[in-house]
């Protein structure tokens, strides 16, 4: 295939699926949450973190709109040497790892329909010292658009790595 056959990059627009960086931070040492607020004007989100570590062994999870009600349903395949699957119909968060550890190597969560007044679907893949392999997909049952996305840990962050939020314009 010649170079002339490579499609030109999209310039974006209302109907594009181009993700743009909304915000990126290094978690503050000793903090237990990283929360992006005042999200608006997007229809899709991609929530990523890379090379973050925890001060002590713990797990991480995601919540939206500070909602800790039982509104998160998902299936998960996770493990290190052996993969196991599980289903959670009414969780108060989207759990990342089933095991625990200090190294949260990285994960990517893609959330669709965040500006809709109905359920939002999400898919995720990642890796940590708790679960070398992780695949998650599910639904966040909420009518309100997502304006806040939070990464929580049962431990505290060590002040390294990156947590970033990307979005596709509405």
């Amino acid at each position: 295939m010649g170079a002339s056959q490579i499609p030109a990059a999209s310039t974006g627009g209302a109907t594009s699926d181009n993700y743009v960086l909304i915000s990126s931070v290094t978690p503050t040492a000793a903090a237990s949450t990283v929360s992006f607020t005042s999200i608006s004007g997007y229809r899709k989100l991609m929530f990523r973190w890379l090379d973050t570590t925890l001060a002590t062994s713990g797990s991480v999870n995601i919540t939206f709109n500070s909602d800790t009600g039982a509104n998160y349903a998902y299936g998960k395949v996770a493990g290190t040497s052996t993969m196991s699957n599980s289903q959670t119909q009414k969780d108060t968060k989207i759990a990342l790892n089933t095991g625990t550890g200090t190294s949260q190597l990285g994960a990517t969560y893609i959330i669709d329909g965040i500006n809709n007044s109905g359920p939002k679907t999400f898919q995720a893949f990642g890796s940590s010292s708790g679960d070398t392999n992780l695949l998650v997909n599910g639904v966040y049952y909420a009518s309100a658009p997502i304006t806040t996305a939070t990464l929580n840990t049962t431990s505290t962050f060590s002040g390294v790595g990156t947590v970033a939020l990307y979005g596709v314009a509405a």
Binding site: I22, A30, S32, V34, S35, S38, T92, T150, T156
Partner: peptide, 30 residues
């Protein structure tokens, strides 16, 4: 032990420290 989080307002870029409840929502074993 007091817990805190960081909050990033993506519209303004402002980063603030917020105090969190002391309870950790660790789920009980199923």
């Amino acid at each position: 032990m007091s817990r805190f989080g960081m909050e990033i307002n993506v519209e303004t870029g402002e980063v603030t420290r917020v105090e969190l409840p002391a309870v950790v929502d660790e789920a009980p074993a199923e």
